[in-house]
Simulated scan of single mutants.
Amino acid sequence: MTAPTPRFTASTQKRLRRLNLAASLPPVVFAAVVLVYTDARTWWHVAVLAPGAVAALVAFERWTAGDLDRFALPCAVVAAPVWPLGVLVTGSPNAYWGICAVGSLALRQVRRRRALVMAGLFSFVAVVGAMRLLVQRDDPGDVVVRYVLVPTVLTVVVTVLTVVGERFYDLIRELEQTREREAELAVVRERVRFASDLHDIQGHTLHVVKLKIALAQRLLDRDTARVAKELRETYALVSDTIAQTKELAYAQRRLNLTAEIENAKNLFEAAGIRVRVTREAEVDTRVSELLGQVLRETTTNILRHAQAARVQITLAQTGITIVNDGVTATGLPELRGLAALRQRVVDDGGELSVEQRDGRFRTAAVFAPARADAAPTVAREDGR
């Protein structure tokens, strides 16, 4: 069993909570009812034993919600007296169950001297069980087995299983944090690549412009024809740089759809997301750059905003579809990059749609057949 904490994302916390409640709460409730029914012989026995069972159920439910800190002490205060009352008053050998469950769960909240607290829990169960000898002296062996050995051993077993579950939870937490760090690193790599392209475009250009202006200043009074030539070249160079920068801003510069697909697969796999690419046909080269831009923007959005485990990329003769299962909100998130792309896709004769349905987020860019008239090929699939 695993228990989420506030450090997890909200969606992960909800999934783990639902898993724990669905898998573990019914058996815990059943055990509580059976134990109370077995030990209670009159109505007031139920009144004595029920608070321990209720405290155990509350502690378990709060544990799955990651909110046991505020409830551990109150639940322990309620469950602890039930065991002595069961031993001395009602003769209930199973009355230890409440403090056993609450104590084993509450050990997670203990940060110091956990071994000492654990030993105290075992000693409490054993010593209180031995107090049965004060009211039942005719069969000491039966008392030791039913009230001391069995409760103490089961408390030890439950505590060990809880500690193992805690270690399993820590492993899941580390894996989740690693996945988040990989996603952040993928976004950083994408930014570094953009910065590198921007430097390639503007760094050399600005340096050349600086030299040409300095040369024009020196020739201003001696060779006006040469100055005019240098200024014309400078103007053309700046115009070309502006065009390249604009293309880079829209992710079009040297953009290749095949390379973008491979890059998207690498980014998703680095973030721990399973990706599958299905190629139904070869895409017309006239629309491949814009489809690559849609794929790049969608990849960035998934890494930044979604909690996806699987991504499906489908290439058709007329476009591309990207589907992921990382829906984290009830409504469509604000995706400014795709919103800006939609008009450019429309201007090129296509349609860009974004929809969220049945826990999946679908982005599709489709062009008219005239824009993607390449001959269809045999469908093939690749992915991991």
Rank of each mutant, 00 (worst) to 15 (best):
L85V: 07
M118I: 09
G272E: 03
G141I: 02
A76L: 14
K210M: 11
G203V: 04
R146A: 13
I261K: 08
Y235E: 15
V29M: 12
R357K: 13
V192A: 13
A101F: 11
I261T: 15
D358P: 00
T155E: 06
R342A: 15
T330C: 03
Q13I: 00
V156A: 08
T178M: 12
Y250T: 14
Y96N: 09
L73D: 05
V187Q: 08
K246H: 14
V46R: 04
W43F: 13
T328E: 09
G319S: 02
Q252M: 13
I99A: 01
P74F: 10
I213L: 15
G103P: 10
V287T: 05
E381Y: 05
K246E: 15
V287P: 00
G103R: 07
V117A: 15
A101G: 10
Y96K: 07
Y250S: 12
E269K: 12
E297I: 13
A115V: 15
A316V: 06
R15Y: 07
N266F: 10
C75W: 00
G292C: 06
L255K: 14
L291N: 03
A3D: 08
E355G: 05
V187I: 13
L295P: 06
P51I: 06
Y147S: 02
R279S: 12
V277P: 12
R384Q: 11
V209I: 11
L303W: 11
T258R: 14
K246A: 13
F60P: 11
P74T: 08
V128E: 00
R7I: 14
I273K: 08
D284Q: 05
V145D: 03
D221K: 09
A101E: 05
G98K: 04
A101P: 09
V153K: 05
A271H: 06
A243W: 04
T155M: 05
R357I: 08
I302S: 10
A329I: 05
V110C: 05
D221E: 12
V78N: 02
T318E: 11
A95T: 07
L352P: 03
L171V: 14
L121E: 09
D221M: 08
E190K: 10
G331Q: 10
R384F: 14
L149D: 02
L185D: 14
N324W: 07
R304G: 01
A340V: 14
T314G: 01
A329G: 15
F168P: 00
A365E: 00
T298F: 09
G349E: 07
V187C: 06
R362D: 08
A379K: 09
K14A: 15
N266E: 15
G52N: 04
A372G: 03
I261Y: 09
R232I: 07
A32W: 04
E280T: 06
L68D: 06
I261P: 11
D373P: 14
W83R: 03
Q307E: 15
D358W: 07
A271M: 03
Y147V: 03
